[in-house]
Design a protein around this nucleic acid. Structure first.
Lengths: 226, 226
DNA sequence: ACGCTCTTGTGAACAAATGCACAAAGTCGC
DNA sequence: GCGACTTTGTGCATTTGTTCACAAGAGCGT
């Protein structure tokens, strides 16, 4: 048992970040009634190299069959288990603007491992509104919704200006994992896990690569001329 | 000049991914009328270590002053330039569901480096609707909007089922950078830059760490008892 | 001018991640 | 059974990224 957990514990971060991608690719194979898949095929669907995929999976254990490949259902289960998706995690979404609504109505939650248990907003105008079988509640309800000690994931979908306040409230209520969609960096105390998703960051990274491309094209022209 | 570009070219990926965060932190300092900042302070606002920040900035050039720190305005300019944000990049958003609307009305575009030039949707019901000074157009307009050779960033905010089709259309029209918000992996030809933003991936990574936490708490209890 | 204090920029050590190449281990046809 | 073939799992080399620790500068008071 301790061995089992130790095996899980040292899964590298880079691997953990790719596991959801494998899980998604496996989901597509499942609906296509594919029973078995090779590392080559699965890696291609997930957009990685097969060597990387195999090394990633080897961190979870040895679940493939040499000469054959991986059993789709079994590998799905093993990855889910490694990620901790064998039971549903409660999620509270704070901020019911455009983005909050989009997230709340996003189907991806229910399907795998998560359950939105509450929608919160500071604005009294929005409180009481029903969205997808849930009623928007005021921020004050936060403490009664989260049981400290029992894990819960908080999603921040507020404007940047209120993000830090909301994060502080979430932490005070006992939330230990936060996903921040607001366009600002927020500070959380040690022990709270925080991840950030941000449109402009992603666009800026793409812009950098576009710029590199045009710069190198320009260089080639110059070299050709020189 | 070639030296200048060569310096830019070998900025490590990990550094590029962090530059937008520094830019954002600098923006906050700017509105607070702070003129100068040390690596320690800036690193803290951006949530990284000061050593990492300094090494990252050293890849852009030597823009700090020893004993003093960095000039906020000048560093902002240098990072913007490195990322290619000295002029606006055109962005087309495909898919005007909840998410597409949220993205379209997201203020972050205009402020720095990007300009939404078109909103597209396959659904005739949505075509013609006005959102933030733009009219939703049918997919067919794509080719007339994008000038091949001139860089343009495409954002996919459609359901997963149509994401691959949309990506193919974008590529065919000449878009060379794609940001995919759909909950599916898409394949793009070599030479097209693709990034993926996905709620469930992020949640699953958080779930993994929550699970690690509870596992290690359980372990400690067992050790204490044993 | 000089020494004191501060903070950058960077070389060198260290750590993490990736890619390669192949032995190990399985299936299948005969 | 057995040899041919397939595909996994992994040791090793390489690349990429991070951390440390400090010399090299820059400002300041005297």
């Amino acid at each position: 048992m301790s061995v089992d957990q130790a095996a899980k514990r040292d899964i590298p971060d880079a691997t953990v970040a790719r596991l959801p991608g494998y899980l998604r690719a496996l989901g597509q194979l499942t609906v296509q009634d594919v029973l078995s898949v090779s590392s080559e095929e699965l890696a291609h669907s997930a957009g990685v190299s097969s060597a990387k995929l195999r090394k990633d999976l080897s961190h979870l254990g040895s679940y493939g069959v040499r000469g054959v490949g991986y059993d789709v259902a079994h590998l799905t289960y093993q990855i889910s288990r490694a990620l901790g998706l064998t039971h549903d995690w409660p999620v509270v979404i704070v901020g019911m603007g455009n983005l909050g609504r989009a997230l709340a109505s996003y189907g991806g939650f229910a399907t795998k491992g998560f359950k939105v248990v509450a929608l919160l907003d500071r604005d009294p105008q929005l409180v009481g509104e029903r969205l997808d079988e849930l009623t928007v509640q005021p921020m004050g309800e936060l403490v009664s919704l989260v049981t400290p000690g029992e894990a819960c994931i908080g999603v921040i979908a507020t404007p940047a200006a209120s993000a830090q306040d909301v994060a502080d409230l979430l932490v005070a209520a006992g939330v230990s994992s936060i996903l921040n969609f607001a366009a600002t960096a927020i500070q959380v105390p040690e022990g709270v896990h925080m991840r950030k998703v941000d449109l402009s960051t992603e666009l800026q990274i793409l812009a950098f690569h576009e710029q590199q491309r045009s710069a190198s094209v320009a260089d080639e022209l110059l070299e050709g001329a020189g």
